[in-house]
């Protein structure tokens, strides 16, 4: 008999064998790529957006939010940050999507809160990916999706048809406010997308502490859980602040005269009537 050798596995593709060889390091990089580049960026992004709640000076159009946006745009080699983020997102999402289908959820049978958390982590990951893509496509690449008009800051004063004299007019807050005030669907889209993304990060932070071996006792897992829940609340309140800021912004009353002029150039047929009757 020549059956002494165990049956050999079917020959794997080069990609499969590469993934298998580096299994451990890929898993850890997957964890790290979610927490550090993507997660920290989202924290900063939400904090910047939260500044919208302070509004702006209706005579000059200056405000904290505009100041933050200008700071980000003044950073050197911003495109490197942007492309690194895309790299991290592609890596994290690609592997994450694959990992998702190595498991089979069973919440129906074992309806523990932790098991639900496991399933939600996978669902929110997919929601977050779709959300981030649509968010960037509409606001950054200016795709016209579902008929939403979602202009981006960079295009705000540089949009075709805006005379050079207006290129210093800050438009970040008015245009973001307009994008969100057009339809409650946009608000809902952001509510679902941001909640899913923030949950995914906070829960990922909690499970990463177990995977990396930081929280090695049930008690420490619980303590770290409170920290992660606290982060969730903090980030969601930043989000709430930005939403309130954008929704309470009165396009007719709170814009400066220059801003109104640029706004009317960029948005020739505003879907929200600008009530300029009581302006000082």
């Amino acid at each position: 008999m020549s059956t002494a050798n165990p049956p050999k596995k079917s020959p794997a593709t080069p990609l499969c064998s590469l993934l298998e060889k580096n299994h451990f390091i890929l898993r850890r990089l997957h964890s790290l790529s979610g927490i550090v580049p993507i997660g920290l960026f989202v924290c900063m992004h939400l904090f910047t957006n939260a500044q919208m709640i302070w509004g702006q000076d209706s005579t000059t159009g200056e405000g904290t939010f505009q100041h933050e946006v200008d700071f980000i745009h003044s950073m050197p080699a911003l495109f490197i940050i942007e492309w690194s983020l895309w790299g991290a997102i592609a890596f994290h999402a690609g592997l994450g999507f694959w990992y998702t289908f190595t498991g089979k959820h069973n919440v129906k049978r074992y309806s523990y809160a932790d098991n639900l958390r496991y399933m939600l982590q996978r669902i929110t990951g997919v929601i977050a990916l779709v959300f981030i893509f649509l968010h960037v496509a509409t606001l950054r690449w200016r795709w016209d999706l579902f008929g939403w008009f979602t202009p981006f800051y960079g295009e705000g004063y540089q949009a075709p048809g805006v005379p050079h004299a207006f290129h210093d007019v800050p438009m970040s807050l008015p245009l973001t406010a307009y994008a969100l005030q057009i339809s409650w669907l946009v608000v809902l889209f952001y509510l679902v997308g941001v909640t899913a993304s923030v949950y995914h990060w906070c829960n990922g932070l909690w499970t990463a502490a177990i995977s990396w071996g930081l929280t090695i006792t049930t008690a420490s897992m619980k303590r770290w859980g409170f920290v992660c829940a606290g982060l969730f609340v903090a980030l969601m309140s930043f989000f709430a602040a930005s939403m309130i800021g954008a929704l309470k912004f009165d396009l007719g009353q709170d814009m400066s005269a220059d801003q109104i002029e640029v706004f009317e150039l960029i948005v020739p047929e505003s879907r929200i009537p600008l009530d300029v009757s009581n302006r000082p």
Binding site: F24, Y99, N106, Y112, Y118
Partner: peptide, 17 residues
């Protein structure tokens, strides 16, 4: 640390329950 190792744990924590 190889394929199928600890890193494949999804932290659903049903096991302990």
């Amino acid at each position: 640390s190889g394929p199928g190792g600890v890193a494949d744990c999804g932290n659903a924590q049903n096991c302990v329950k």
